[in-house]
Simulated assay, not measured.
Amino acid sequence: MTFTTAPVTVVVDGGYELAEGGRWADGRYVYVDIISGRLFELRDDGRPTPRQLARLDVPLGAVAPVSDAPDVWIAAAGTGIALLTVDGALEWLDRPEERTAVPSRMNDGVADPAGRFWAGSMAYDGTRGAGCLYRTDLDGTVVRVLDGLTIANGPAFSADGTTLYLADSAAGTILRCRVDALSGDLSGGPETFARLGGEEGRPDGMTVDEEGCLWVAMWGAGEVRRYHPDGHLLHTLSVPAPHPTSVCLHPTDHRLYVTTARHGVTDPTPASGAVLTVPVPVGGTAACIWRGRY
């Protein structure tokens, strides 16, 4: 596969404090601004102006579409998992992070090919080991799958749903877990897929492309990395913002979308807090949906 450096384009101007969670769903690119609790869409029709879909009074980590319920989302928000309805209201399924020893919130999340929703959490002050990974089953039950994490980030699944990649950003590690596609249970403990950190940045949002390779936004490094399933680094793309936060591949047009943050940047670039795009020679898939009852 030919992979050359291509120009990066700003498709939505900077200004978001912590843009994250970019996904393609139903012909639109959806993403959040975590700290302000806002959800946006960018239609795939050439219009560059995003539309705000919701604004919450709690942080909004990520959303996934809900089966047979247009404009309803399952959301990792505030201290738990909720259904975000068309009127902007939250119907809570569970708020497990209210029962933690330190103030915490939900972070990034994604639906898997079987229709379950997975989301991580973190302590506001970054307390080591306070983060968890949760799975929301089709009956709405929220299950704690892993604990002892610090900043659980970027869940991403292989196309068959049997491999889960999970970043612990503070620890600088990407974990790989085997998943029972029928039950959603992990088959054994997680293994270390990659160990990163220091000057090379820390892993944040991730996605798997149509060839099974893992793309990783590298917070603090101003780059996106692509890894082979065996763990070796294939390519590195530089982006004009120090804190890329999530990556998403267009399902039909070979474009990579990258959200970025202004949060924690001493001297923001014009692309800090923006949505960027760059042509790449490989495609992705549309976001999976939560197939629970609504």
Rank of each mutant, 00 (worst) to 15 (best):
A170P: 00
T136C: 14
H232C: 10
W24L: 11
V280F: 08
V102S: 07
A77V: 13
T49S: 14
G37I: 08
D68P: 04
A274Q: 01
E20I: 10
A217H: 05
G161S: 06
V208W: 06
G220R: 07
V58S: 11
A123N: 05
L234S: 02
P268A: 09
T85M: 08
V216Y: 02
G220A: 07
G14D: 11
T2D: 15
G172A: 08
D26R: 12
L83Y: 03
D68V: 06
T173Q: 13
L18I: 11
L249F: 05
E199R: 12
P229A: 10
G109F: 08
C132A: 15
S67R: 13
V110C: 09
F3G: 04
R293Y: 08
Y124V: 10
V216F: 02
T277R: 04
T127I: 02
V8E: 03
R178Q: 14
H235Q: 14
I34A: 11
T245P: 05
D13E: 15
G198W: 01
R178Y: 05
D267N: 10
D87H: 13
W118N: 04
R43D: 04
E211T: 13
G172R: 02
S104A: 14
G46Y: 00
D185R: 15
Y165W: 12
A123L: 06
V216D: 01
A274L: 06
L164H: 05
P268N: 11
E200N: 14
A123E: 04
M122Y: 04
D26Q: 13
D139E: 12
L237V: 15
A69C: 10
D26A: 14
G46R: 00
E97I: 00
G78V: 04
T269Q: 14
G198K: 01
E98C: 01
D112F: 03
A76W: 00
V12P: 03
G161R: 09
G27T: 01
D26H: 14
T85P: 00
D180C: 08
A170K: 13
T163M: 07
M206Q: 10
P7M: 09
L175R: 12
Y227I: 06
L84H: 09
L56T: 07
S187F: 08
Y16C: 15
R262K: 14
P70Y: 04
S36L: 12
M122A: 05
V32K: 00
G126K: 13
P48H: 07
V278F: 00
V179E: 03
P65S: 09
D160L: 13
E223H: 06
V224L: 03
A130C: 08
R255I: 11
L56W: 01
G21F: 00
L60K: 12
D13R: 15
P59A: 11
S272E: 06
T266K: 10
A75T: 04
N107F: 01
P203H: 03
T236C: 13
T266V: 14
A170M: 12
M106W: 03
G22N: 14
G188Y: 10
A274I: 01
A156H: 05
G197H: 05
L164E: 00
R226V: 08
A25V: 13
L18D: 00
G273N: 07
G15H: 09
L42I: 07
A77C: 12
E41R: 15
R202I: 12
G46H: 02
P240M: 07
T127N: 02
T252A: 12
A181F: 04
R55H: 13
E211D: 15
A82T: 05
V142I: 10
L146D: 01
S169M: 13
E17C: 05
Y29A: 02
G154R: 04
V72R: 10
R225G: 00
T127F: 01
